[in-house]
Design a protein around this nucleic acid. Structure first.
Lengths: 252, 252
DNA sequence: GATCATAGTCGTCTGCCTGACGATAAACAC
DNA sequence: GTGTTTATCGTCAGGCAGACGACTATGATC
């Protein structure tokens, strides 16, 4: 027995993506330029409609693949390959958030290692990685001196919530490894924490902490010199997902 | 310019509520009996359609008031009066979660102090507080010896997620006070933690921890003997929302 | 009224973890 | 070789948590 369609108002349901990565020691998010009204020409988060036969997570994974080529991890499987971490973030449903009609957006958060270059349907000029502070600042000027328009719709709020989720989640989980390539050094992992939190961490205490937490890191045996200086051990992400005790974010 | 309605599939959007409270040293959730198919006669979480002009949080607050008479707090205002804490939990949108049509449910989590009795549109027999283990057990027998049917739809999953959110959130926030009356003793707060986590806590260490965390508790000056034994100091919830360092949940 | 049971509150001690920081190691640039 | 950079190991003091002893203040029971 289907519902009486007059008994409830119809909604459009979309997924929007907060895709974060660390580039050049800065936390960056994927932004796409809108090609049509409303907010034509403004930057926005990637996203799209949920299809009739699609789960929300499937829709988010499909959008992520379309925008970045990344495959999403099965959340039940620990991070192993080069895929991105994908999780539901929150849902935004203010009646006026889209001027055209009633749209409820289920935002998702994706964490990815540094990628070569974004592609938005093949058009590179309409997609870019931008530092999150640049995307979130209101009416300032970007690094190139041009005025910065705020993100379309309520996407500044969504991005802000996604960044806060990422910042708090790397405290008590091993999610920071999702920003790293499959093999990485302790120093690279530390620079991820520093970029996401925007702080400087003591390399010695950080090294002691991450190598001393069981299941966080697994040495691969190899070493590298990627960053100059003494060669560093290479690690993969271990099976542990929850860090106990957590990494402590320095205050202020 | 409205969307072309043929460009996207129409969805129904509902809010479902995980309303938790602590009664008789057990973590309980509000359940309502379904009066119509599908799942007629089965227990389910309270919920309903989001109206055309309503925000998601407004819809959740309205449903909460209809089912329990509780007013929800403005999330920006710290807990002071007898209202309930209300926050968005997660969104569930499996294409088959409702056999009738495509329904996306934005689940919310509410934490309330112990209430006299539930009312579901005035019909008490169709609403009850039930221990969460009882609602979540699959095909067992309840306290009264009658067989227990699983919750309708995917509500067991939603309830499970809500309980897990509550369990983890009282670790690092002062949310446990949302389960307490406006004035409460340290022992009452401890029994909240014990019920939600299902563990026993050392009364002395707990007392030291909560009274030593700045901003968590504010003494009102009064004392009480509600639980027998030596009179205890009464407290109100302080302004702090985040506990740093957090309460530690004993392992296993 | 003495005794007991029940809760609440204050202390002590020990072990672990963290932050601060010195020291050494192994590469590269000149 | 010297200096620079990054990685890694150690040391030490302070803080917090778990274990648990001791004392206090009420009501219940004999």
């Amino acid at each position: 027995m289907p519902y009486d369609p007059s008994a409830f108002p119809p909604f459009a349901v979309t997924v929007d993506l907060v895709v974060l990565t660390v580039r050049r020691h800065a936390l960056c998010a994927l932004a796409v330029r809108r090609g049509e009204p409303p907010f034509q020409g403004r930057w926005a988060l990637p996203g799209g409609f949920v299809r009739a036969d699609e789960d929300l997570a499937q829709a988010a994974a499909r959008e992520l693949a379309e925008e970045t080529g990344l495959r999403a991890h099965d959340p039940a499987v620990p991070v192993q390959d080069n895929g991105a971490h994908l999780e539901q973030l929150a849902t935004y449903g203010d009646p006026k958030r889209d001027p055209r009609m009633r749209v409820v957006s289920v935002a998702h958060l994706a964490l990815a290692p540094d990628l070569p270059a974004p592609r938005a349907g093949g058009d590179a000029s309409n997609a870019r990685w931008a530092p999150v502070e640049e995307l979130l600042q209101q009416g300032g000027y970007g690094r190139d001196g041009e005025p910065v328009a705020p993100l379309a719709f309520d996407h500044a709020q969504i991005l802000s919530d996604g960044v806060e989720r990422a910042r708090s989640k790397i405290e008590y989980s091993s999610l920071a490894t999702a920003f790293c390539p499959p093999e990485f050094t302790v120093g690279e992992l530390r620079r991820v924490y520093e970029a996401v939190w925007g702080v400087a961490l003591d390399p010695r205490n950080f090294h002691r902490k991450v190598t001393g937490t069981p299941g966080f890191l697994v040495p691969t045996g190899g070493t590298t010199t990627r960053q100059g200086g003494r060669p560093a051990q290479l690690f993969r992400a271990g099976g542990a997902t929850l860090l106990n005790p957590p990494m402590l974010r320095p205050e202020v």
